[in-house]
Simulated assay, not measured.
Amino acid sequence: MSALQALKIVITNLPATADDRYEPRETEELISFQVKNNTAQEAQLTQENISKPILQEIASGDITCDLASFEAGSGGFGEVLVGYHEGLQQEVAIKFFTITGGPREKTRLEKIIKEEMAHLLKADHENVVRIFGYVKWSFAMGIVMEYCKCGNLKELLLDTSIALGLAVRIRFLYQTSSGMAACHNLPDKRLIHQDLKPENITLTEDLQCKIIDFGAAELATHSTLATVNPLARSKKEPPQYTPYYTAPEKLKDPAMKAKKEIDVYSFAMIIYILVKTEKSQSNSNY
């Protein structure tokens, strides 16, 4: 069963009263509350809400992954494959990085992977993809994370056979903004995604949104928004942004310091895509 087939079954079996869950006034309050994430209530995130970062290495023998069998997608610098975790006894997604150089390249690649993992571990939230650890082979390395079987929002929006009610669309926006707000309100830093788009919002079997692909993410301080600890990329591998969802100032100056407004702009574009009355199925910018 494909991701979209699974998603059709989930949406078809939604309760008949699903469209009654959100009144217009309540919808405005939900969006307003999540976007204005500097309020005192949202700032109450404490250390107890954030898991302590543990960069766990998973033995390669515990991961079964057929490179030719199935690819879940791609993002940043790696392909995303589907594998099986013997210890957890469940399917997992593996962001796969092929090692093309010698020991120096392997060390640099491992640093990139650990940076992305550290970012995800800091943002421990139900609407941010869960990380299990990383795995190393002689020819490649990978980040092992939860596998969302129902694909992503881009695939959903491009499928003309699936009719989405307003309640489902608002639910997607609410969950996405919840994950974004959690990233922006870590106890000591802000985690700026910088590449938020429908393709980077995956869906579980119970229609739970999960933000993925933090390969372009950076940490910024709350006070000065000065960028700290950026991913260790070479000059030949700059972060890859999606123009349609990237703030104009970021497109003009890709080296500008990370700030939460970059993600807010991207989220505003996602709102437009999801709530507009008619969607152009031929628009590949989704």
Score class of each variant (00 low, 15 high):
90 Q>K: 10
113 I>W: 06
88 L>M: 05
44 Q>I: 07
98 T>V: 13
20 D>S: 01
32 S>E: 03
118 A>D: 07
94 I>C: 05
53 P>W: 04
91 E>Y: 09
84 Y>P: 12
42 E>G: 14
46 T>D: 08
59 A>N: 15
107 T>K: 13
55 L>Y: 02
18 A>D: 05
20 D>I: 03
100 T>P: 01
25 R>S: 09
89 Q>W: 00
50 I>N: 05
24 P>H: 00
28 E>A: 04
53 P>K: 03
108 R>P: 07
113 I>G: 04
30 L>R: 07
116 E>Q: 09
99 I>H: 03
62 D>G: 06
116 E>Y: 01
114 K>I: 10
115 E>Y: 12
59 A>R: 12
107 T>H: 15
110 E>Q: 10
37 N>V: 10
100 T>F: 11
66 D>T: 09
56 Q>E: 15
64 T>I: 15
75 G>C: 03
92 V>R: 03
114 K>W: 06
21 R>F: 13
57 E>F: 09
114 K>V: 02
42 E>S: 12
118 A>E: 08
45 L>V: 14
29 E>F: 06
42 E>Y: 06
92 V>W: 06
33 F>K: 01
65 C>P: 12
47 Q>R: 02
22 Y>T: 07
113 I>M: 01
96 F>P: 09
106 K>S: 13
83 G>M: 05
37 N>H: 12
79 E>M: 14
85 H>P: 15
58 I>L: 12
35 V>N: 06
57 E>R: 10
60 S>Q: 13
42 E>V: 10
71 E>C: 13
17 T>K: 00
34 Q>H: 12
33 F>L: 00
33 F>D: 00
23 E>A: 10
103 P>V: 05
104 R>L: 12
51 S>I: 12
84 Y>V: 13
73 G>Y: 01
96 F>Q: 05
97 F>E: 07
74 S>T: 06
103 P>S: 00
21 R>T: 13
68 A>C: 08
57 E>D: 07
28 E>L: 13
22 Y>P: 14
66 D>W: 02
81 L>V: 03
22 Y>R: 02
104 R>D: 08
44 Q>C: 10
26 E>G: 03
22 Y>S: 01
99 I>R: 02
61 G>E: 11
102 G>W: 01
56 Q>G: 08
69 S>D: 08
37 N>R: 07
103 P>M: 05
102 G>R: 02
48 E>V: 11
85 H>N: 08
76 G>L: 04
60 S>R: 15
25 R>C: 06
69 S>T: 11
44 Q>A: 12
19 D>N: 12
83 G>Y: 02
115 E>Q: 06
51 S>K: 14
28 E>M: 10
23 E>F: 14
87 G>A: 10
105 E>D: 13
118 A>I: 12
63 I>Y: 04
80 V>M: 05
